[in-house]
Amino acid sequence: MDNILSVKALKQVFSKETAIDNMNFEVKRGEIFGFLGPSGAGKTTTIKILTGQLHPTSGSALLFDVPSTKVNHPKYLKKIGVMTDNSGLYSRLSVYDNLHLYCELYSVENKRKRIDEVLEMVNLIDAKSKVVSKLSKGMLQRVTLARALLHEPELLFLDEPTAALDPANSRHIHHGLQELNRKGTTIFLTTHDMQEAELLCHRVAFLNNGKVQLLDEPSKIRRKYSDDTLTVELVGGEKRTLINGPEGAQKMYEYMLNNQVVTMHSNEPTLGDIFVDVTGRSLL
């Protein structure tokens, strides 16, 4: 897979405070890339640089092989969808009017049909005629996501897309994003929800104090930080921890031979645990 996005030695300083420091990573075309970190880690600043809203202090970011500083051009903006936490919707207009404006700006064909499709995708079709000022925070977030999807972008930037949503709506959105990704959309997703990252992302980067501290596939990260043990629950409720190796295998063989095993599972840490290990910070 070729890279749709490539970041090299990126640095951003705001009045002597370093928000991003020597950041390096690539996003492959067609993947869901998770950018994980606590609030203030530099996630939103990175999105602003990548989408041309902010010029970096030094270093470079290439999108579609074009520097991010030049991406603010209609030719490239048509390929990008951005959803940030700050809604940016016209509060006195209806959901439909808001989406219709963006259909016009992006020259979307079959506007009504497309608006219905994206509203279905974010589970908001019943709120089509509602005035935006009457919507809840979670609904606003879903309208903003719908707006970012209208023109079927090649590269979608999502800044905490399910932060204000209940589990049912989060699941609905996750399903929609996976479907979108299957159709070829590359997704750059920032989140501090590790379950969301594990479920959706092909690769994740751990961000802390403006630096990428770890980058890999979630399963590989978990394996790397696994303590190589297995927990076995035996008949009677007793739990035993076995170390991977001949000794553990012998024990396991005995338990199974005597029909004592009720459950067993590998002791892999969660991404959240690993994040705390690597960065020394929690995700909230």
Binding site: K75, S87, S91, L105
Partner: peptide
Amino acid sequence: EKNTLRGLMMSPAT
């Protein structure tokens, strides 16, 4: 104030 100008600037509108 409502951060809608950013949305317009990020659209293909010149």
